[in-house]
Design a protein around this nucleic acid. Structure first.
Length: 267
DNA sequence: AATAACTGCAACCGCAAACTG
DNA sequence: GCAGTTTGCGGTTGCAGTTAT
């Protein structure tokens, strides 16, 4: 099957996002909803691939994201869920509202792994280190083959069955979280990755006070952007998703061509 | 003060599943 | 059922900031 090239397409920008790009992306998604990532960059006037836009949105720009370090509770939850699910970061993230798989993955690799090792626990098997091989090489191998993990006592409880997964993970959760999950299940395929969890008027723009001391230039720009950004006042997630059909069918009218300069009027 | 080493996070890459015609 | 396309996921990398020397 032919996979289309993504960012290696000539003319597409890579690397850190600028504040302007963030603004374009946020404005576009807030106006038109989240759909058709492939077409989004052109429609939003971005010289990025759809994949890059999706990543930027889900990992950084989504208004429902919590920022800052994971709390003790969240961290413990990640450890428990990892013991059950392994490196299935998206599954783990789905149990932590406002957290992304990338964020959890990074936190695991940079903080929790070390913490567990310090405590004499193998972060991979969640067993005491003395009973497991702690050869870095071996660990690397294991990491890479998480999908075919040799069954440990904990991991052997993992089942692919959704039903069983629900029951095992919900056992770890507090009643509120459990209820939220049940409600989400009732919402016909709703998942935390589908924005928003909140209404536009409830959007809490990450402020300067509790914002993480993120140090990358793009992050700083974006914090600024999000502070300044005026989210449009409309019901974002009603049946206005047919905006997309309009936009897509209107594409020629928008005169957005591959090599043309885009102009976009922001709300 | 300079710079080497370390750390943490955002972003990219490639694969596979899901979807579509 | 098949081929092509899109989306989602997990692993990895690059780089800016921080700390140690």
């Amino acid at each position: 099957m032919g996979r289309q090239p993504c960012c290696d397409k000539v003319g597409l920008k890579k690397g850190p996002w600028s504040a302007e790009e963030d603004q374009k992306l946020v404005n576009f998604i807030l106006t038109n909803g989240q759909c058709c990532w492939r077409a989004l960059p052109k429609l939003a006037g971005l010289l990025r691939c759809g994949k890059s836009c999706r990543l930027r949105w889900t990992n950084y720009l989504r208004p429902d994201l919590k920022r800052g370090l994971l709390s003790e509770d969240e961290e413990q939850m990640v450890i428990d869920l990892h013991a059950q699910l392994g490196n299935r970061w998206s599954k783990i993230a789905s149990h932590l509202p406002g957290r992304t798989d990338n964020e959890i993955k990074n936190h695991w690799n940079t903080h929790i792994k070390k913490k567990l090792k310090k405590m004499g626990i193998d972060p991979l098997t969640h067993m005491p280190l003395s009973t497991t091989t702690s050869e870095p090489q071996q660990e690397q191998k294991m990491d890479k083959s998480t999908k075919e993990l040799p069954e440990t006592s904990l991991q052997s409880t993992i089942t692919e069955s959704k039903e069983e997964e629900k029951s095992t993970t919900s056992a770890l959760l507090d009643p509120t979280t459990e209820m939220m999950m049940m409600l989400m299940d009732d919402m016909d395929g709703f998942c935390t990755d589908e924005v928003p969890l909140i209404e536009p008027h409830e959007i809490l723009v990450p402020g300067t006070n509790d914002a993480p001391s993120s140090t990358t230039s793009s992050s700083c720009d974006s914090s600024k952007l999000l502070e300044e950004l005026q989210f449009p006042d409309f019901d974002l997630w009603d049946d206005d998703f047919n905006h997309w059909e309009d936009l897509l069918s209107d594409r020629p009218k928008l005169a957005i061509g591959d090599d043309e300069e885009y102009s976009w009027t922001f709300i």
